[in-house]
Design a binder for these strands. Structure first.
Lengths: 131, 131
DNA sequence: AGCGGTGTATCACATGTTATGATACACCCA
DNA sequence: TGGGTGTATCATAACATGTGATACACCGCT
């Protein structure tokens, strides 16, 4: 578990997925769970790049995706900020959850599981209760 | 949607995902749902390649993955066959479902949804009831 | 023994994604 | 004006994916 800290943030990066996507997802999580206040400034491209031991271009890629999705607002010369719109955040959270659910339900359906089966399996699923 | 048939099988291939993975998944689905009998022969590498308009190498890639996972048995000079072990198939189905569930639950947890939230959302989810 | 249908291996090649490393430019604020 | 921002653009590399082609290994059948 290679964990890297920058300011109050903590990042865990592996090689199972594109780095820039992991950065995006970890910001999404942190914001949606309220670990980062809305409107707050996040590390600069160069700062985060240095902390994560990747190139600024990779962080840039992540930041551009975050802006496209409405998670952040970037102000040239000032920095990148989490959107101050609570509604925007809620919308994003709902949308991401919906995508996850649709994909999951499709996959399970392809494997021949009914909705009732799925509900039963999830109820039986014990694992990350301690998180 | 671009549908291609070969024998009694039907394939739908797009460009959102690697072709060989789509082939694997569609065989998994068909077998697990009983649409292909266990022990039965599936199309030869060349035959399926021609039907799907891809190169034999791509189909080969898929067939090798299927054998690695235990879904098929290949007999050189004879062809590729769905495993005749019902237990093998059940194990595979369970394993694939488990992976899907764990990933899904992790993702939803990252988005700040509790198990109770998730159950509620799935119960409310109407989509592929008509399939 | 030979033929035809199988799976298999190995090239060369092309394309797209991901990531690095470097450089330069544009913008904002103190 | 300087220093910190985001941004754009190169060149380069590694890897995954897919194509196209060729050759080989194996099996069952006649």
């Amino acid at each position: 578990m290679d964990e890297r800290r920058v300011g109050s943030l903590s990042f865990r990066i592996d090689y199972s997925q594109p780095i820039y996507e992991q950065i995006v997802q970890q910001f999404q999580s942190s914001v949606v769970k309220g670990e980062i206040e809305r409107g707050s400034k996040i590390p600069s491209v160069r700062e985060l790049a240095q902390a994560l031991h990747v190139t600024p271009n990779t962080v840039m890629h992540a930041y551009q995706e975050m802006e496209r999705s409405g998670l952040t607002e970037t102000r040239r010369g000032q920095g990148t900020f989490i959107t101050s719109s609570q509604e925007q955040i809620e919308q994003l959270r709902t949308k991401l959850a919906d995508v996850a659910i649709q994909q999951f339900m499709q996959r399970m359906s392809d494997l021949g599981y009914s909705k009732r089966d799925i509900l039963r399996l999830i109820e039986a699923n014990e694992r990350d209760e301690e998180r």
